[in-house]
Design a protein around this nucleic acid. Structure first.
Length: 973
RNA sequence: GCUCAGAUGGUGGAACUGGUAGACACGCAGGACUUAAAAUCCUGUUCCCGUUAAAGGAGUGCGGGUUCGAUUCCCGCUCUGAGUACCA
């Protein structure tokens, strides 16, 4: 029979499902290998041809590893909480669960059609209560933990309480809020429970705090920093504003240093690691306190100097401005201080004389949107507060300005300006006529700031003559001695907001009592998402969960049938019979469920733990993770954070979750255009001009469905049928064809450039699609999808099928011994595919398969000994056709996935002769075939004696002859 | 602006440690089969000059350099894409 891909593919997909061929065992003597894909959000649009690219690559890898004798875990699931389903619910009233389930069904059907070797028994869905129970459980663990800097790990809150009870707050070195109380053990015990809980909240790894958030009014929710791009929401592109709100946050900053260091231990693409490094944004520097020279309330006019403190002396009222700097060595070059317009001291510092100026400037800043403020980096603006601080090292009086180039959210929201060394400070100083003090001998500050670290200090008191390193050390030592500064590391990364004012997400397992959050008991998990009437905020502006009726925590009522009455943690049940408490109304953000899902796959049905100890100790971490680089600063950072936390509390065993990561490139759309002729009155006609002729006509371009265009040639009949108004379209053709224009754009329905894998599978089969997606180019490279060329892969598979069949399509394989040439072809491909897969170069192995099949076809090879191995080697790429041929070859019933990858034998590739390319001055001119056993001197003699070579020499004596054995001969004349 | 990635025929791409540039495939051209078309098969296909074939010259974004030899290494530049953005 001819190659009947439809029957074959259906048959084997059924076989794999029936026999659970790809089920992974949690205990086996085989070595483990965990191949993971980033699980998809099941959108209503289904899969387009770009989505499976990474899945195909990982599937090939997983199948290859099985052939190599590994116990492979290769699971798939759905990140099924998210905004689109909810937006749809708001519009249509349909429960997000229903649309999500329908979308998942579509995804599953599409995935199955491509023939992936997923272990579907381990499927996870983040929106399923069995799953989000454990997301909530992790939240509880975070709430019950604090970060001990001395131990450099997370520890139980109970341990912190113990410490408070015995020693008070002394000796605690924690990552926590800025305003913490300092107290003795007795004082702690004297606090009310309310006060204690409020204090503990400042230490918990997930905590509630009033913070400035990215509020997106159109979506009705806050967004994380990585969900905001240029002042607009990443999803939907709605404007985002800054707003102060009470919010749940994750203390990811506690892990900043470990997240940074961990990058050096994992095999990820360098650009992606760089993105994480930038996002974490570590700066090493110092914090310095500049004492206020003068209480502003006393500073009538410019009555300077009266209350200036002596250097290092205590100021009454202990007022100072703290700055963070990475160049503390330039402190003698400070000629002014700049604080953010939002800085808390602005009002206090502003003198009556300057009040009008400052108020005007603040008003002007507020008017500018975040976007304008970022875009406009050229204009220098600012205002003088009227106040001064003292340079702690030389007592100089330094004016304090406000300017919007200083950001309230970074460092301390204040900078010491050194115009000689910093370009922004330089421009500011020039603009407002402030002094520019050179501090390094070789500094050139004629036209711009010079941030050099070379040279010796000048104008710098005790530092004069020192270099950068000694100078910095000396300044830090001096500041520490004065108690006015110290070395400090600053991170750009902020704590992550962990709450969304939306419905379709995990409920936060928290209720409120006396305005403070308490955890619901672990045994009551999962806290189920309640049913509500509409998916909109309440009339009073509460999140949608506020609509749920009687959704309250009732500690005195049994939660499930047959359960005993329980008290809430930390609760006080006296007199609380029948009491009920409000639940948290915001839900968890999209990244909650995806920050630990790879562990759930290890033990997907466990209802006692998120995964068993044994499963985690066996599978440990993900060996290969494939996904898009768009998750660099979101999912991939949060996942590493949760993983480190779970490691700290002893629940997982590896510090990093994803050992090796590959980014598949984005598949862009490739749009086709037709050109509508415009008549004299400027109206569109129903005539279309071929692309090559548009210069001569007045036209307007129009997207045309790429599925009715073949190699840029428009199918005229399909075009007429495509849209009613084109039914009687006319065409201006070139060479009898209508040629379309081409442009690379995003793949989207509105651009008519979406190619659906279902269509391609119907036409060519899954094996062709799989191989073609790989053939397109290097996995990591972004490229536009172009179906031109898929025929080539399809022809290859037919040609491969034909190797096993005679002219009448009868299966016909010979048992003869293979020839040397046949063995050479086979072993070339055995080695090539092995090398290519190990370096994730899938496109080159597809070419090599074509070469192998071309060679074997030319050799008319139908030897069983060759074809048996060839089928195994191709199986990861084109599994269906290989399963079928495997059975036809007479192998025992079962799947080819249990076969062993053939062993490469280099002996078959040994050659006796080599056709040496002979170059003259590096230009290849001719080939001379010689024995490979010949040594350099003999080769040189033989080459020079060759008649062709003699001809090129033309009687001249070569100046030099380079002979590289087995490679090349180069003659210099 | 900064950081990173990339630039090779009409197209997608190959060339793994500096050693025959353009493998493999698409497209295109010509041919075979066919009443015809589709499908299939065969031949050719970097460009220029020339041609029966040859022979020659140029050539991996641009300009330099190192080397017997550079798509590959070094320096400078242009363009494209991605990330980031007053980060003190």
């Amino acid at each position: 029979m001819d190659y009947q891909f439809k029957d074959i593919e259906q048959k084997w997909q059924q076989f794999w499902a029936d026999h659970k061929t790809f089920r992974a065992e949690n205990t086996t003597s085989k070595p483990k290998y965990y191949v993971l894909d980033m699980f998809p959000y099941p959108s209503g649009a289904g899969l387009h041809v770009g989505h499976p690219l990474g899945y195909i690559a990982s599937d090939i890898f997983a199948r290859y590893k099985r052939l190599k004798g590994f116990n492979v875990l290769h699971p798939m699931g759905y990140d099924s909480f998210g905004l689109p389903a909810e937006q749809y619910a708001i519009q249509t009233g349909q429960h997000p669960l229903l649309t999500t389930e329908a979308n998942i069904a579509t995804y599953r059907r599409q995935l199955d059609q491509i023939g992936f070797s997923f272990d579907w028994d381990r499927e996870v869905r983040t929106s399923s209560p069995d799953y989000y129970k454990w997301t909530q459980w992790i939240f509880i663990q975070l709430f019950n933990s604090w970060y001990n800097k001395d131990a450099d790990k997370a520890e139980s809150i109970a341990k912190l309480v113990e410490h408070f009870e015995s020693k008070g707050s002394a000796g605690i070195n924690a990552v926590c809020d800025e305003e913490i109380l300092s107290f003795t053990a007795t004082e702690w015990k004297d606090m009310t429970e309310q006060q204690q809980q409020a204090e503990l909240l400042k230490y918990r790894l997930t905590y509630l705090r009033e913070s400035t958030v990215n509020w997106c009014a159109a979506l009705g929710t806050v967004l994380a920093n990585d969900e905001v791009k240029d002042g607009f929401s990443e999803r939907g592109g709605y404007p985002v504003e800054q707003k102060k709100m009470m919010q749940w946050s994750m203390r990811i900053t506690a892990y900043a240093q470990r997240l940074l260091e961990g990058l050096d231990t994992i095999d990820w693409p360098e650009p992606l690691k760089e993105m994480q490094r930038n996002w974490i944004g570590k700066s090493v520097g110092a914090s310095v306190r500049f004492p206020l020279s003068l209480s502003p309330t006393l500073s009538e006019g410019e009555g300077a100097g009266k209350k200036v403190s002596p250097i290092g002396g205590d100021l009454e009222g202990a007022s100072y401005i703290e700055v963070f700097t990475t160049r503390v060595d330039t402190i003698f070059g400070v000629s002014f201080l700049v604080i953010a317009p939002e800085h808390e001291l602005v009002a206090e510092l502003t003198t009556p004389a300057q009040k009008a100026d400052i108020d005007a400037y603040i008003a002007q800043t507020k008017k500018k949107s975040e976007l304008d403020r970022m875009a406009d980096t050229k204009t220098v603006s600012g205002a003088f507060t009227g106040s001064y601080v003292t340079n702690p090292l030389n007592g100089d009086k330094i004016p304090v300005w406000i300017a919007d180039y200083v950001l309230a959210g970074y460092g301390t929201g204040a900078v010491m300006a050194v115009p000689s060394g910093d370009q922004r400070d330089y421009l500011f100083a020039k603009h407002f006529n402030l002094p520019i003090i050179p501090i390094i001998d070789i500094q050139n500050i004629e036209v711009e700031a010079d941030p050099t670290k070379e040279g010796k200090y000048i104008n710098s008191d005790f530092m004069n003559g020192l270099g950068y390193k000694e100078g910095t050390a000396a300044v830090v030592a001096k500041l520490e001695e004065l108690g006015l500064g110290k070395a400090k590391v600053n991170f750009r990364m902020r704590d992550a907001i962990f709450g969304r004012q939306r419905y379709w997400g995990e409920p936060v397992p928290v209720y409120f009592k006396g305005g403070l959050p308490y955890l619901i008991d672990e045994q009551h998990l999962p806290l189920l998402l309640p049913e509500i009437d509409k998916y909109l905020p309440t009339e009073s502006g509460e999140p949608p969960l506020g609509r749920a009726t009687d959704w309250k925590y009732k500690p005195n009522q049994p939660h499930k049938e047959g359960e005993a009455k329980v008290s809430p943690t930390g609760g006080d049940l006296e007199g609380a019979k029948g009491a009920s408490y409000e639940y948290e109304l915001s839900t968890m953000p999209g990244w909650a469920g995806s920050s630990w899902y790879w562990y759930r796959y290890m033990d997907a049905h466990n209802d006692q733990e998120f995964a068993s100890r044994e499963a985690i100790e066996y599978w440990r971490d993900v060996d290969l993770y494939i996904g898009g680089s768009e998750h660099a600063t979101g999912h991939l950072l949060y996942s590493r954070f949760w993983n480190k936390f779970l490691k700290d509390i002893g629940k997982v065993v590896e510090e990093e979750p994803f050992k090796k990561l590959i980014n598949q490139g984005m598949i862009q759309g490739r749009s086709n255009f037709v050109y509508r002729l415009i008549d004299e009155e400027g109206r569109g006609t129903n005539t279309f001009v071929s692309h090559g002729l548009i210069k001569d006509h007045k036209i307007s371009p129009l997207h045309v469905d790429v599925n009715i265009v073949d190699n840029e040639v428009l199918n005229l009949n399909k075009f007429k049928a495509w849209r009613e108004d084109f039914a009687d379209a006319e065409f201006v053709l070139e060479n009898g064809k209508y040629i379309c224009g081409v442009e690379v754009e995003k793949m989207s329905k509105s651009k008519f450039n979406v190619v659906n894998p279902d269509d391609l599978i119907a036409r060519y089969g899954a094996d062709t699609l799989r191989m073609y997606e790989m053939f397109l180019g290097p996995l990591e490279q972004s490229k536009p999808w172009n179906t031109n060329g898929i025929e080539g892969v399809f022809k290859f598979l037919r040609k491969f099928w034909r190797l096993f069949h005679d002219a009448e399509w009868n299966f016909n394989v010979s048992n003869e011994a293979p020839t040397k040439a046949e063995l050479k072809s086979l072993h070339k491909i055995i080695r090539k595919v092995e090398e290519d897969i190990e370096r994730f170069s899938f496109n080159t192995s597809v070419s090599s398969f074509m070469i192998a099949v071309n060679e074997l076809t030319d050799l008319k090879c139908n030897k069983r000994a060759i074809l048996h191995d060839l089928v195994i080697v191709l199986a990861p790429y084109a599994p269906h056709i290989c399963e079928e041929l495997w059975v036809l070859l007479g192998n025992p019933a079962g799947s080819i996935s249990t076969a062993a990858y053939p062993k490469f034998n280099p002996a078959y590739l040994v050659e006796d002769e080599f056709s040496y390319p002979v170059s003259f001055n590096g230009k290849m001119k001719t080939n001379v075939s010689l024995s490979l056993t010949m040594e350099a001197a003999d080769i040189e003699a033989a080459i020079l004696a060759n008649t062709d070579v003699q001809k090129y020499l033309d009687g001249k004596t070569p100046k030099k002859v380079i002979v590289v054995k087995g490679r090349i001969v180069n003659i210099v004349i």
